[in-house]
Amino acid sequence: MNADPAPTTAAEPRDAAGRPRVRAAAPADAEAITRMRSEHVLSAPFTEDWVRQCTDELAPRLTPEGDARAFVVDAPDGTMAACALSLIHPVLPAPAYPRGRAARVQLVATHPDHRRRGYARAVVSTLLDHLADVEDVTLFELHTSPQAAPLYRDFGFSGSPALMRMTRRSTSAPASAGTGGGSSWVPPEQYAQSLPKAVAFVCLYITDEDDHPLQLHSVYSPSHPWHMIGGALDLGGTPWDAAVRECREETGLDIVGPPRLLATVYGPPRPRRPYSTVQFVFDGGRLSTEQIHRIVLAPREHDEARVLPLDQWQDLMPESDFARLRAVEEARRAGAAGYFDTWGNT
C-alpha cells in the first residue's frame, strides 16, 4: 500500500472545510480501483485479461449486499485520484472484538500525479469510520510497507515483532506435527500472540514561563481538537526518544533531558481500538516567549499553537481531556508522577 502522509500544497477537490472530497465507491468504480491496484500497488501490473477478471469479481462485491467497501477521491478531470478498499469477513468473537466482524484493508492507492495532498489519509479515515460506525466492525487488519506505516499508526494500527506474515498457496494438506510428551512449552510467536496487545504513545507537557500550558490544535481530530505534543512510539524506539522526535517534527524545537516522567496513562480496549493503550507523559519544560514564537507547525497535523492559563482550556476541550491536563499539571507541581487508569481518572 502507498501513502501520501505529508501534503505540500492545496489541491482540488476540497470541501468547504478544506478537506479532500471523499465519496463511497459504487460497482461502476470497480475497474478504476482495479487499475489503481494494478498500476500503483502491485510489483507486476495485471494483463488486460486479469483487469477484466478482477473488475468482474469486485463490482458485485461493492453493492450493499457485498463484502467490499471502498471510498475514493476524484481528480478534477474525472479520473480516480485515490482509493481505499476493505473486505469485511466474520471471525470468532473475542473480548477485544466482541461483534465478530473483521475488515481487512485490502488496498490504499494514490495516483502519482495526486500524491502528497492528504488524499490517502482522507480515504483511509473515511473508510475506517464507515466500517466502525455503519458496518459494526471491531477488528481491523492490514499489511503495509515501511513507508506507509506511519499513516496507519496514526489511525491506531500496530504490529508485533514477534509475529510474522505467512502465506500458503498450495491446496495440499500440511504435514502433521507431534505434540511431544506433555511439555508445556510453546513457541515464542504463539505465546506472544496469546498476550494482551497494547500500543504505546508519548507526549510532552510544555508551558510558558508563567506555567500556562502549551497545546496544539489538530486538523484531523474534531472530537479532540487540542492536545499536547506527542505521538505513537515507533517499533524498536524508546519513549523519551519518541518524545524528542515528535517535538521536533510537530514544532521544529529540540528539547533536552534528562527525561522526567510526569504521568503514565492506561487506556482499556474500546470498540474502535480493540487493544490497550499506554501513554508516557514527560515534562517538556518551560519555553520563553522567543522560543514559542519560533514554533513551526507540521500543517498535515496542526494549524495552531496556543498558550493559555490552565482554567481557560476547560471550555475548549472535552471534559476528560481537560481532567487529564489538570492532573498532569498537578503532578508537575507536586513533583510526583501520576498514574491514571483512564483519561483524567486517578
Rank of each mutant, 00 (worst) to 15 (best):
M1S: 04
N2Q: 09
T9I: 10
A11C: 01
A16G: 12
G18R: 03
G18H: 10
V22S: 12
V22T: 04
R23I: 01
R23F: 04
A24H: 11
A24Q: 11
D29P: 06
D29K: 01
A32K: 04
A44F: 12
P45M: 10
C54Y: 12
D56Y: 13
A59Q: 09
P60G: 07
R61D: 14
R69D: 05
A70G: 02
A75I: 07
D77V: 05
G78V: 02
A81N: 03
A81F: 05
S86D: 04
L87E: 07
I88E: 06
V91E: 08
V91P: 10
P93R: 07
P93H: 14
A96M: 04
Y97C: 04
G100C: 11
G100L: 01
V105S: 00
V108S: 01
V108C: 06
T110V: 15
H111I: 01
P112W: 00
P112D: 03
R115S: 07
G118E: 03
Y119S: 06
A120W: 03
V123S: 07
T126N: 01
L128W: 00
H130T: 09
A132N: 08
A132G: 09
D133T: 06
E135R: 07
F140V: 00
A148T: 00
P150K: 05
F155V: 00
F157Y: 00
M166R: 03
R169C: 02
R169L: 10
G178D: 03
S183A: 08
W185Q: 08
V186E: 07
P188Y: 12
P188I: 10
Q190L: 13
S194L: 06
A198S: 14
A198M: 11
C203M: 12
C203P: 11
Y205G: 01
I206F: 14
T207I: 07
D210Q: 14
H217Q: 03
S221M: 15
P225D: 14
H227E: 14
G231I: 13
G231T: 05
A242D: 15
A242F: 08
A243D: 12
A243S: 10
C247W: 14
C247R: 01
V256W: 05
V256S: 12
P259L: 02
P269R: 14
Y275E: 05
V281Y: 12
I292H: 13
I295P: 06
D303L: 08
R306Y: 05
L308D: 05
L310H: 07
D311I: 14
Q312R: 15
Q314C: 09
M317S: 11
P318D: 15
A327Y: 12
A327E: 15
E330I: 12
A331G: 10
A331C: 15
G335W: 06
A337T: 07
F340K: 02
W343H: 15
